[in-house]
Amino acid sequence: MAAGGDHGSPDSYRSPLASRYASPEMCFVFSDRYKFRTWRQLWLWLAEAEQTLGLPITDEQIQEMKSNLENIDFKMAAEEEKRLRHDVMAHVHTFGHCCPKAAGIIHLGATSCYVGDNTDLIILRNALDLLLPKLARVISRLADFAKERASLPTLGFTHFQPAQLTTVGKRCCLWIQDLCMDLQNLKRVRDDLRFRGVKGTTGTQASFLQLFEGDDHKVEQLDKMVTEKAGFKRAFIITGQTYTRKVDIEVLSVLASLGASVHKICTDIRLLANLKEMEEPFEKQQIGSSAMPYKRNPMRSERCCSLARHLMTLVMDPLQTASVQWFERTLDDSANRRICLAEAFLTADTILNTLQNISEGLVVYPKVIERRIRQELPFMATENIIMAMVKAGGSRQDCHEKIRVLSQQAASVVKQEGGDNDLIERIQVDAYFSPIHSQLDHLLDPSSFTGRASQQVQRFLEEEVYPLLKPYESVMKVKAELCL
């Protein structure tokens, strides 16, 4: 049975990233139509530049190519590739079939990587351009969430054990800070992308030097003109047959890092959902379990974690691919890159769409948070109580021993009897502590235990987050809708 299948058929496997999760716009960027249309555009740009620099290419040939950029006979191309065992030459023939007058000058002087690699770089750039505003929107939604809850005390956790208090907004800023680093890295790697350009079979530009009869300047002009037509500021000066596969490492490393950030955020949300302090959106008709109707599973956060793990592992592909590119190139890269580049971007696209949807509907339960604080705060307040007693004339050592005994009794009630923490009640009825009984409410005010959390939130948002989001103001209103 021949390899390949009808990918629109229910009898043929289709990647869930495309069929179930990723956005239509990201799927289109990695589609065959987008790819092969870009090949034709690159052939047109090459012909236009070659004509401008004096090669015998007519206006009629150029116009014929322009008129057929979208006229792609995919069936013919597939048949040609089956016959020739070469995808680029299959599309040269297919393009030439609908451009008979231009057929002889299509791909003039070029090698397969002229269309293959340059198209990949265009796709990487455009895919990054799709991700950047999506990530900015996630940051914006979380920034709104953090600002609104900047002063809401909550129990902090280290080692997932109760620690000092923080605020809900401050905790959210930990998430935002990681995503801001990801946004900066995505922008950097996007701006650092260079075009492969017009380089020939081993990167020496020998074929173009021959076409222009040894004119170095025209060869350099050709490279520059096509690079500018493709919208790049610069091209690699040095290439082998391909652009260095280190570029793929750079791009997928940034995406993998984004995956790590999203995994951490969504894990926190899942843990908070278990504590009943916070939940992701839950639709009115949504079913959490087929057997347990009360369940409210954090399905979206779980999906993000599941896909983020996949995204983090994909960076190993370009690392290994770059390491086995012998001399000017081997074909070890080809099949692998067809999979890992598309999957990385479709996965990143999915987790950003999902995280935006989550961040637009996060639900906080202040009463649950308050109750958990009441359970733990008495123990945390013991040092403040000791200091207040010393100020009232008591002995630190005597007070410490009193607190120690009462704390152990209260802990026994919590752990052995399943009761509430009654340390404060014990202190309130103990005559030894009568000098500070009137101060206990103040000493137990949760806001006095959150330090500068709310001020940190305000400063972080104003100095770091809002300036970073400013270039994306025009796209901030787009909502994230999930079908599944």
Rank of each mutant, 00 (worst) to 15 (best):
T119N: 02
W45C: 07
I351Q: 03
H93N: 12
F327A: 12
K170P: 01
E328D: 05
N118C: 13
F232T: 01
S434W: 11
A18Q: 10
D445S: 15
R83Y: 13
F145V: 07
E463Y: 10
E463D: 10
P293Y: 03
S112E: 01
V198W: 01
W326R: 03
Q221V: 09
E279L: 05
D117G: 05
L108R: 01
M65L: 09
A3Y: 15
K264E: 02
R303P: 00
P378Y: 03
T38W: 04
F28D: 08
F433I: 05
H91K: 01
E64M: 08
T58F: 10
Q456V: 05
G54K: 09
E250V: 08
R190P: 02
L174F: 15
G197K: 03
P378I: 07
Q61D: 14
N336Y: 02
K367Y: 06
S438Q: 08
A342G: 12
L183Q: 09
M181Y: 10
E79F: 14
S306E: 00
L362Q: 07
R33K: 11
Q164D: 01
T38V: 12
C483V: 14
Y294M: 03
Q164P: 03
E383T: 03
I122V: 09
T201N: 04
S67R: 13
N421W: 00
E425A: 12
D398W: 07
S31K: 06
F433E: 03
L46E: 05
E280Y: 03
K170M: 07
L307G: 14
E250Q: 12
L132M: 11
F345Q: 04
V226Q: 02
L69V: 09
K477Y: 14
P56S: 09
H91T: 04
E277F: 04
L406A: 11
H310G: 07
F74L: 14
E417A: 08
D11V: 11
Q286H: 02
D117C: 10
I105K: 15
D59Q: 09
K415Y: 06
S306L: 01
C173H: 02
E48I: 12
P298Q: 05
C98P: 07
I424S: 13
C340W: 04
G116D: 15
A22P: 12
E228Q: 09
F282P: 00
L469W: 05
L135Y: 08
M380S: 02
Q61M: 10
A77R: 02
D215S: 14
M312H: 05
F30M: 12
M278F: 09
S151T: 11
S23M: 08
A308F: 03
V457P: 03
R452H: 06
L314N: 07
G8D: 15
P467D: 09
T158H: 00
L155C: 03
I57P: 04
G288A: 08
L53Y: 06
L252D: 08
Q51P: 00
F157E: 01
S359V: 11
A47I: 01
L272R: 01
G214Q: 13
K295V: 01
R85M: 14
G240V: 01
Y294I: 01
R37F: 10
C172M: 06
W39T: 10
L377G: 02
T330F: 01
L193P: 04
F74D: 15
E25P: 10
L484H: 15
M292Q: 02
G203W: 00
M476P: 15
K402Y: 07
A431E: 13
K415A: 09
T111I: 01
T354G: 15
D87H: 05
I238T: 07
T450L: 06
Y432W: 09
I287L: 07
S19I: 03
L272C: 07
A411C: 14
K233L: 09
A381P: 01
D117F: 02
C483D: 13
T227P: 06
Q416A: 09
I123H: 11
C98S: 11
P293C: 05
G203P: 02
D87I: 00
Q458Y: 15
K470C: 14
S112Y: 01
A308N: 05
V457S: 05
V457Q: 02
D430S: 13
K264Q: 01
K477M: 15
D268H: 08
L331M: 05
V254A: 09
V465Q: 06
V457F: 03
A206F: 03
I373K: 01
L482P: 14
H91C: 09
S306N: 00
K170H: 13
E302Q: 02
L484D: 04
G197E: 01
E401Y: 07
E148I: 09
D333E: 03
K415N: 05
T330R: 02
G231K: 10
I238M: 07
L121S: 08
I358R: 00
E302I: 00
I57E: 01
T111V: 00
D317I: 05
Q221Y: 12
P435V: 07
R33C: 13
G4R: 14
V115N: 04
Y432H: 13
G288C: 06
D6R: 07
A322C: 13
S474F: 12
G231D: 11
R196P: 01
Q285R: 13
I427T: 06
L346S: 09
L252M: 13
R190Q: 13
E81S: 04
A136C: 13
H93L: 06
T167E: 03
L128I: 08
L352K: 04
V262I: 09
P446L: 03
L377H: 02
A235H: 10
L341W: 10
W43T: 01
G231C: 08
T382W: 01
V88G: 06
R14L: 14
K66C: 10
R374G: 08
E148A: 11
R149S: 10
